[in-house]
């Protein structure tokens, strides 16, 4: 089955709330050789974007949107044994998200991509306090911080988090990547916030992250 087809079927199943079938569909595809990265990028991502669009058009309820996201998270967690199996390279990423609960899934996908690239990743839940982020960065001796910003009104908070992290002794060499909707429209915002770079998707984020820590 091609990925577009897979994404379409998956979307239909999650909108109908049929989580068992949705999960079987994906696990079977992976079993048959579809790479996990392709499932993330070409199935989960377009399916969830479509869910968001349908909600905006008032064609599905907010409950359906939440359910679709929850089902996707469940299926993702079933893929974790494959995500966490690559060789470690001694590089650590801490990722966090500023904004709504529904958007956490995106930045976790990014973290999983880093994990598949041999990084050790530590995902902090949405809206973790700045101090806790700093503490985690120090605890795991992180090389990279990933900050996802879901809506423009949270840009100021991202700026203050970055400023706080930059001011911390011992974190001078840390690189910071930002991502999320506001940066798709205006990538130059990343520099203005004091970050080292941004990317349009999970694969791009890993490429940029590798460049930064090289």
């Amino acid at each position: 089955m091609d990925l577009e087809n897979l994404a379409q079927q998956y979307l239909e199943l999650v909108l109908a709330g049929r989580r068992q079938l949705a999960s079987t569909l994906i696990l079977k595809a992976v079993e048959e050789g579809t790479p996990v990265k392709a499932v993330y990028l070409d199935v989960f991502q377009p399916a969830l974007r479509e869910v968001g669009r349908l909600w905006e058009e008032n064609r599905i309820s907010i409950a359906q949107e939440h359910l679709a996201t929850a089902v996707t998270q469940l299926v993702m967690s079933q893929l974790y044994p494959r995500v966490f199996s690559s060789e470690r390279r001694g590089l650590a990423l801490v990722a966090t998200c500023l904004g709504g609960e529904l958007h956490e899934v995106g930045v976790r996908m990014v973290a999983d991509f880093f994990e598949m690239g041999g990084w050790d990743t530590y995902y902090l839940g949405a809206n973790t306090p700045d101090e806790a982020v700093v503490a985690e960065l120090q605890r795991v001796n992180a090389a990279l911080l990933g900050v996802s910003v879901t809506i423009s009104s949270h840009l100021a908070r991202a700026a203050s988090l970055i400023k706080r992290v930059r001011a911390q002794r011992g974190l001078e060499r840390l690189k910071i990547l930002v991502g999320g909707l506001p940066f798709l429209a205006a990538p130059e915002l990343s520099g203005e916030l004091g970050a080292d770079g941004t990317a349009v998707d999970a694969a791009g984020a890993v490429a940029r992250g590798e460049e930064l820590v090289r």
């Binding site: 929850a70 609960e101 839940g125």
Partner: peptide
């Protein structure tokens, strides 16, 4: 509910790691 779900998924992620 989403928050709870996220917490569970994060825990699961940690456990898998």
């Amino acid at each position: 509910l989403s928050r709870l779900n996220n917490e569970l998924v994060n825990l699961q992620r940690d456990l898998a790691r």
